[in-house]
């Protein structure tokens, strides 16, 4: 399912002294099966954009096309519900949304709201809890007895069990320790690759955006200022500087080495790839 914004403008508190233009005339597409990153400073419109993507906010002007459903300023509840079914959203600190008596019931909440019957919902819940390495012995315990990391996994399972075609991640690793951070990002990467789900990642962590996403959209003060391939945008020092975005660690290192005369044919994506390229360069220049 593709999602397209057509001349979309979003205004908060319209016609009051607090009026605020959050998104300004944006036309863009999120194509099926790709991994997107949305970057920009606090207040750039990122969170308005993702909430508009799944119908939590409706556009003030313009349209959102999600598959063949169109959302406008005054769309019907039924259409909005349809969009939510296809577009899942993992909020920042998703563990704060847990409420059921047991882990299993909590994960089943979303699927049941989306019209799955009890049995299917339970099947899905069990499947995704397993996928997230939650031990079956915990299924009947209260989610509030789990550790913070496990609670987050249960909350994520609750979204995945709705089997969305598009998955939006809002700072999914906030507050996690570095190991869980890597584990969580790898998990989404696997889901993206194995199940072909479109992923839209909003984060401050430019290393994650660089490593995992295919496409990047840069927002600044409500404008979509640049979009394109991650490998093009996040390696463009001038562009990043203009919107005061940090370059990813590897990009910074590669550029610093270029200034020393060490140049690589391609941009490495991780430490291992960098090390290999570097060693290659060393052997070639040893003579």
């Amino acid at each position: 399912m593709n999602i397209t914004f057509k001349n979309l403008t979003s205004i908060y508190h319209e016609n009051t002294p607090f009026e605020h233009l959050a998104l300004n005339n944006i036309t863009t597409t999120f194509e099926e099966g790709l991994y997107y990153g949305i970057v920009g400073h606090t207040g750039s419109g990122k969170s308005t954009m993702i909430q508009t993507l799944n119908g939590l906010l409706l556009p003030s002007l313009g349209e959102v096309h999600a598959g063949n459903i169109v959302l406008r300023r005054k769309s019907r509840q039924r259409n909005i519900h349809q969009v939510k079914k296809h577009v899942g959203m993992v909020f920042q600190f998703p563990e704060h949304q847990l409420f059921e008596e047991t882990v299993l019931k909590d994960v089943m909440f979303g699927p049941k709201n989306m019209g799955m019957d009890q049995r299917t919902a339970e099947e899905k819940a069990r499947h995704y809890l397993h996928l997230l390495n939650i031990d079956a012995s915990l299924f009947d315990t209260s989610p509030f007895d789990l550790s913070g990391g496990q609670m987050r996994k249960v909350a994520i399972a609750g979204i995945l069990a709705m089997e969305p075609e598009v998955l939006i991640l809002d700072e999914p690793t906030a507050g996690l320790d570095p190991e869980s951070h890597i584990e969580t990002m790898e998990l989404f990467q696997n889901i993206h690759q194995d199940m072909g789900i479109t992923v839209i990642l909003v984060t401050h962590d430019m290393n994650d955006v660089f490593q995992y996403t295919d496409q990047v959209k840069i927002l600044s003060e409500g404008h979509l200022v640049k979009e394109g391939r991650t490998d093009d945008l996040l390696t463009d020092e001038v562009l990043l500087e203009r919107y005061s975005l940090e370059p990813p660690d590897i990009v910074r290192l590669v550029h610093d080495l270029e200034r020393k005369g060490i140049t690589f044919e391609q941009m490495p994506k991780n430490v291992e790839a960098f090390a290999r390229l570097y060693e290659e360069w060393r052997t070639n220049h040893a003579q």
């Binding site: 570095p178 190991e179 951070h181 890597i182 290393n207 660690d249 590897i250 290192l253 610093d256 080495l257 020393k260 060490i262 430490v271 291992e272 960098f274 090390a275 570097y278 060693e279």
Partner: peptide, 27 residues
């Protein structure tokens, strides 16, 4: 999880502790 530049100094240099700037200098 080790910081990025320590990982690299371990992988590529003698593994001695160094700052990022030092890493760039020694590579």
């Amino acid at each position: 999880v080790l910081p990025f530049h320590i990982k690299l100094s371990k992988r590529l240099l003698d593994g001695a502790y160094m700052s990022y700037d030092e890493l760039v200098r020694r590579l």
